[in-house]
């Protein structure tokens, strides 16, 4: 895909250019039994800078699989996913391992299961520091050879922290504070935090590299409603703070999607049933799956007045 084509897309939406473009995706999955095999086929899907795209669908519709493919962690059988940053187009599955790895700091992922979304054997702060250590962020302006020397010094130094480690720790603590965790909580083990706090820590880990895209796979489905509300409010604040970051959010709760989404994509048995601005999809869904979901959500919520 040429960069010039990417530029053509820009005028269509106000928030920003295309950040991620998936085309002709095909992914077949089967677990032995025929009845359980399913095929995910998506012709075209784009994520724009600054938008929240919600993938909605029943369980088994392939929404989580699509999310992992878009996030670059699940290789599709065919098709490509392009990341367009700074005028450079990079095919996530076509580029080599090194390139892929170098692009990872542009992606932040938050998963569903609160109990094992953080390593229970390590302090929260260590988990949050990981992405920084892996990508060696913040990029130091010292040359590579000095860097090696620095590392040796760090290795030899027993105990105390180097300047760099202090800096990284400060960044991690800053992000943790932003999501509502204090330094004292950062030094705990995940089991000593509540579910909501753990999920906040997982969000902090996703944000610590300042990614351009954040992927959330049902991040609140295991939480209580009141905790879910505070996490959703946090996500909205984060979205407003950084208006160019793109979010892809997977949920089966349309009302929740309504809270966050700019665009909603409805998936039905591995196909993209419809995609459009959130208001439109909710007001007049065009697909069967969309209509059914909206109807059920309405009926449930009407009872609450």
């Amino acid at each position: 895909m040429l960069p010039s084509e990417a530029m053509d897309e820009q005028p269509q939406n106000q928030s920003g250019g295309v950040l991620l473009r998936a085309s002709d995706l095909c992914f077949a999955y089967s677990s032995g039994a025929k009845s359980q095999s399913f095929e995910l086929i998506v012709d075209e899907l784009q994520v724009h800078a600054g938008e929240v795209l919600v993938l909605c669908g029943a369980s088994g519709s392939g929404k989580s699989t699509l999310l992992s493919i878009l996030a670059g962690t699940q290789r599709p059988d065919s098709g490509r996913v392009d990341l367009l940053t700074d005028g450079v187009t990079r095919d996530l599955y076509g580029c080599g391992r090194q390139q892929w790895k170098a692009s990872r700091h542009d992606f932040g992922l938050v998963y569903q299961d609160v109990r094992e979304s953080l390593n229970d054997r390590r302090r929260v702060i260590d988990s949050v520091l990981d992405p920084l250590l892996v990508h060696d962020l913040p990029k130091s302006n010292i040359g590579a050879c000095v860097n090696v020397w620095q590392r040796i010094v760090e290795l030899v130094r027993w105990g105390g922290e180097s300047e760099r480690q202090k800096k990284q720790r400060a960044i991690a603590l800053d992000v943790l504070r932003r999501v509502g965790l204090q330094a004292e909580q950062a030094d705990r083990f995940p089991k000593n935090l509540s579910g909501g706090q753990r999920q906040r820590a997982a969000i902090a880990r996703a944000l610590v590299t300042q990614p351009r895209l954040v992927f959330l796979d049902e991040p609140t489905s295991a939480l209580d409603v009141s905790v879910q509300a505070s996490v959703v409010s946090l996500l909205r604040e984060l979205h407003q703070e950084n208006p160019v970051r793109g979010y892809v959010f997977v949920t089966h709760d349309l009302a929740l999607a309504r809270q966050l989404a700019d665009r909603i994509a409805v998936l039905d048995r591995g196909r993209l049933a419809e995609i459009g601005p959130a208001d439109e999809v909710l007001r007049s869904p065009t697909s069967n799956a969309g209509r059914e979901m909206v109807a059920i959500a309405r009926r449930e919520l009407d009872a609450l007045g």
Binding site: A229, A255, R258, A297, L301, L304
Partner: peptide
């Protein structure tokens, strides 16, 4: 108040 609603994009 924590339950997200469908109609308005009301802050939770």
């Amino acid at each position: 108040g924590c339950v997200p609603r469908l109609d308005e994009k009301r802050t939770l």
